[in-house]
Design a protein around this nucleic acid. Structure first.
Length: 597
RNA sequence: GGAGUCGUAGUUCAGUUGGUUAGAACGCCUGACUGUCACUCAGGAGGUCGCGAGUUCGAGUCUCGUCGAUUCCGCCA
């Protein structure tokens, strides 16, 4: 098909282009028919330009009058100054006096109007994603994503990293998340797995001497989804040899520094704040604290102050070994009966009997259902600890340590949201370090690796690898770290075990026999026997980073073709059934679901 | 796997205590209008109230089931 190709995009013409003869290609966005004069906004991904068609130009006018929304057109004409300026768009000072118009393609009436402030539901937008992407709000995210990708590639090349592609069809390793499986036709009854991350390959590449590896890669996890979790997502995956934790931090700080500088024009600190996991849990009840919250709202431990209290709820909590009484202060907000009730509801859903509170009224009195159980000394102690002033409210929970801290952490976030205490204009990066290596699972009565089985314990804890005492084992801290941004985990990594004896002890701890270890991880263990260098790395949750840069709550709109929470694609309707022949070739039979009565 | 919210015109929504012919806005179609930019004005078409069952003289409205979207917990780095 021959057509007049564009000389400019729909976003670039300005006053300086006046009198130029130009051609634009794009979509009909809006038509304003004044009976005689006809104005049309023509759109492409660069912007919007108004074209003017006068009835005197009979041929162009007859064509133009019949144009519908989303028709694809080529218009040629002269750039002229507008009689009345539109300040809302960059091309608002000019318009095109059309001499010639060509319809390149017609369009059916779209199922929703393509405009920035779209009214359509997510469901409809996903079904017609190609129309959704015509909206600037979405296309800008994809363009941003591409820009960051270029920055990342450039940065790592400059830092002497090698970009290596690792297999998408790999061996299923049952540790961690559920794998997506791909049946093998050649080996009936056997399956490949799609990578949850290229973890094992990148460590083997370190054994190969590749030294500094990076890859922006797709990862897959067959788990239930959330707003910030898609079944397939993207990581910036990296691994380095002969490094310590600080070297990995430095490389990533540099990377985020460049991204923020180029995308946001913001200079990030050269080094990010750091906090240990234990500090984060103790102060914020979370391993990914949001540090943007005004007043910080740290959790305070009240166990010492109330230990002699006769209040039964506190006594019960403190009588068990891991029991604690702790609280959090909400400053200067009017806490009504209604708010207390809704907070109590919130806390009850987390498994508590109730929520204690001390409300310091403006007249100096203290309002609380607990005052009658607490002595003057205790009340003073609490008030002093929190530096509570009139108008503040202190909320108190008691029970098992971790649960109390996490729940106060949730409460902290809820306060931040309900009372708008978060400074949305800043970016708070934070390294959380020294994660526990293991946790004990009460149901399965065994230890599990907190991060993954190749994580190196910190030197001073290696002695506990032979212990089986729950407290001792759970006290082991690892060379394992997360990077947290505004309360979101955006990077996770560790220094890996490169010594076979330590690796064996870790396998022993999680109850993996030599034989099982060999079956699951044999190839990597074998590789490690041939001179594995000390190494470590991390993986950056790319979709989340883009979402934060774009100011989005969900990662969905950072992805061109995302899936729903039930892991389907509404546009192409996958997953879908396959033919009997396809199944037969794979040696697969579908078991019939039990008929419901 | 569990809990919540939502599902009514092409779209976004309203629809009272269960009661006659289910409404609005935008979009669409027709007509008028030569400086609009959310153009304006006049008229018109457009409905399996997600689907199925039940209660009832009568269901968009109540009950149960089911499907889909979404938020959270479990799960997941």
């Amino acid at each position: 098909m021959i057509f007049k190709k564009r000389t400019h995009t729909c976003g670039e013409l300005r006053l300086t282009d006046i009198n130029s003869q130009i051609t634009l290609n794009g979509w009909v966005s809006k038509k304003r028919d004044l009976g005689g004069l006809l104005f049309i906004d023509i759109r492409d991904r660069y912007g919007l330009t108004q074209i003017k068609i006068a009835p005197e130009n009979t041929e162009a006018y007859t064509k133009a009058i019949k144009l519908g929304q989303e028709f694809v057109i080529s218009v040629s004409g002269k750039v002229i100054k507008r009689e009345s300026i539109n300040k809302n768009i960059p091309t608002g000072e000019i318009e095109i006096e059309v001499s010639e118009i060509e319809v390149l393609n017609e369009s059916e009436v779209p199922p929703f109007v393509i405009e920035e402030d779209v009214k359509a539901s997510d469901e409809l937008r996903l079904k017609y994603r190609y129309l959704d992407i015509r909206r600037k709000n979405i296309s800008d995210n994809l363009i941003l994503r591409s820009k960051v990708s270029h920055i990342v590639h450039r940065y790592f090349e400059k830092n002497n990293f090698v970009e290596i592609e690792t297999p998408v069809l790999m061996k299923s390793t049952p540790e961690g998340a559920r794998d997506y499986l791909v049946p093998s036709r050649v080996h009936k009854g056997k399956f490949y797995a799609l990578p949850q991350s290229p973890q094992i390959y990148k460590q083997i590449l370190m054994v190969s001497g590749m030294d500094r590896y990076v890859q922006i890669c797709k990862c897959f996890r067959d788990e239930d989804l959330r707003a910030d979790r898609q079944p397939e997502f993207t990581q910036i995956d990296l691994e380095m040899s002969f490094v310590t934790q600080d070297d990995v931090f430095e490389i990533l700080e540099g990377m985020f520094g460049e991204i923020w500088k180029e995308v946001k024009g913001i200079e990030l600190p050269v080094k990010f704040r750091r906090m240990t996991y234990d500090e984060a849990m103790k102060n914020y009840g979370s391993d990914k604290p949001d540090l943007r919250i005004r007043g910080d709202m740290k959790i305070e431990n009240l166990s010492e102050i109330v230990k002699n209290s006769e209040f039964k709820v506190f006594q019960d909590a403190l009588s068990v070994k891991a029991g604690v009484v702790a609280g959090i202060k909400l400053s200067g907000k009017e806490v009504t009966r209604k708010i207390i009730d809704s907070l109590t509801d919130f806390i009850k859903k987390l498994g508590f009997g109730g929520l204690g509170y001390l409300k310091y009224n403006s007249d100096g009195t203290v309002q609380s259902p607990m005052t009658k159980f607490l002595t003057e000394e205790i009340l003073t102690g609490i008030k002093e600890l929190f530096k509570a002033e009139n108008g503040d409210t202190v909320f108190i929970l008691s029970g098992e340590n971790l649960k109390v801290l996490q729940s106060l952490g949730s409460l902290r976030l809820k306060f931040a949201e309900d009372f708008k205490l978060t400074d949305e204009t800043i970016y708070e990066f934070l390294w959380v370090t020294d994660f526990p290596l293991f946790h004990y699972d009460e149901e399965e009565k065994r230890f599990f690796a907190e991060h993954h089985v190749f994580t190196m314990p910190k030197d001073e804890y290696i002695k506990f690898l032979d212990s089986r005492d729950k407290d001792e084992v759970e006290s082991i801290r690892a060379n394992c770290y997360d990077l947290v941004l505004n309360g979101h985990e955006i990077t996770s990594g560790s220094i890996r075990i490169h010594k076979p004896d330590i690796q064996k002890k870790v396998f022993d701890m999680i109850g993996l026999t030599d034989e099982e270890a060999k079956m699951k991880f044999g190839f990597i263990l074998e590789a490690f026997r041939y001179g594995a260098p000390p190494h470590g790395g991390a993986a950056v949750g790319y979709d989340r980073v883009i979402a934060i840069l774009a100011g989005l709550k969900s990662i969905t709109d950072t992805i061109a073709f995302p899936k729903t929470l039930r892991a389907t694609s509404l546009m192409d309707e996958c997953p879908s059934e396959v033919s009997g022949i396809q199944l037969e070739e794979l040696g697969i039979e579908i078991s019939k679901p039990a008929v419901k009565q």
